[in-house]
């Protein structure tokens, strides 16, 4: 029963990804303004446009184009960049690695930090720590992430202190891991963007759980408070926390585009931004698809995890 539920969920994830590929393909092919014209500009002669269209395979029926594009994606053959003329996959791979590093470090910090902050707030509900933290987090929650980034640059790398590099560019041939100082500000920015949302969610989930019947029963049984919180309340507030963590990770994927831009971090977001500037269509398609797959994957993981920790969802 458990495996069947998980299997169904996986199938749904695959269908979602397929639908996303159709959407991406449609958006970049059916919309007015086709790729060849976009590259050559308005002044191009019809002959030049037709020649490029043939070269890019744009003169084939749309379904054929879609299938060959999708088939390529599955084999990691994403075509050739219209700008550098090199394979898209070579262009994206290092950027993908850098974005993954940013994502991993950010979540390794923000997930435990939010959990701890949320628990501390719930346990001091309505008193000192909770009041101060809640006020700060509510204020922080409304501020767009790129502005947090700008303020951090001003505070830590230019005006007040100058201890960190304001941009995250690394010399070509080097990785961000070889220059860990460039990671500090982008990671801080993303952590500050997610912390308010996630920690307040943990807080309210735990407060709800503490007021629930089974926690009251556990108390009446005479269990020590510590055990009541850890064994009963915390476990049951895990479910919304898992879902919210997946949403947050998905959010990092999208929100990171701007944060990467602010710090000129050499990740997928910057790759997308540059590709849009040069209308490098195949790079755009590939990056958007990777973002979408990441999002679906996080939600899938959250759903499967939720099914495992909550017996009643196994149904």
């Amino acid at each position: 029963m458990l495996w069947r539920t998980i299997g169904l969920r996986l199938l749904l994830g695959v269908v979602t990804v397929l639908a996303v590929t159709v959407l991406i393909f449609a958006a970049t092919n059916v919309l007015p303004g086709d790729a060849a014209r976009a590259i050559l500009g308005r002044a191009a002669t019809p002959q030049a446009v037709a020649k490029l269209q043939a070269e890019m395979g744009l003169d084939r029926p749309l379904v054929v184009q879609y299938l060959s594009w999708l088939g390529g994606m599955v084999h990691l053959d994403m075509g050739r960049s219209l700008v550098t003329r090199g394979p898209v996959v070579d262009l994206i791979a290092p950027r993908f690695g850098n974005s993954l590093i940013l994502l991993c470090i950010t979540s390794a910090i923000v997930l435990p930090l939010s959990l701890a902050t949320g628990i501390a707030m719930a346990l001091t509900k309505g008193r000192g720590f909770d009041n101060i933290a809640n006020t700060l987090l509510i204020a922080l929650a409304g501020i767009p992430e790129f502005i947090v980034g700008i303020v951090l640059i001003v505070l830590l790398s230019t005006q007040v202190l100058s201890v960190l590099p304001p941009t995250s560019m690394v010399p070509s041939g080097q990785t961000v891991l070889g220059n860990p100082q460039v990671l500090v500000l982008p990671v801080m920015t993303l952590v500050l963007a997610i912390l308010p949302y996630l920690s307040r969610l943990v807080r309210s989930a735990l407060i709800d759980a503490m007021a629930s019947e089974y926690v009251v029963t556990a108390r009446l049984k005479g269990l020590p408070e510590r055990q009541v919180i850890v064994r009963h309340a915390l476990r049951n507030s895990l479910l919304p926390a898992i879902q919210a963590s997946a949403l947050s990770l998905g959010y990092i994927l999208g929100g990171a585009v701007v944060v990467e831009f602010i710090f000129q971090y050499p990740g997928m977001g910057t790759a997308l931004r540059d590709a849009v500037g040069s209308r490098d269509l195949l790079v755009i398609q590939a990056v958007v698809l990777i973002f979408a797959c990441g999002y679906v994957l996080f939600n899938l993981a959250a759903d499967v995890l939720s099914i495992i920790v909550t017996p009643r969802l196994r149904g």
Binding site: L23, I24, G254, V257, I284
Partner: peptide
């Protein structure tokens, strides 16, 4: 709701960047 899930997989900025690259 499944159709909504498909749209959910494309974050705001990424969706806008993709379309803006073609339509300006």
């Amino acid at each position: 709701m499944r159709v909504m899930d498909v749209f959910l997989a494309l974050p705001t900025i990424i969706l806008v960047l993709m379309v803006v690259s073609l339509l300006g």
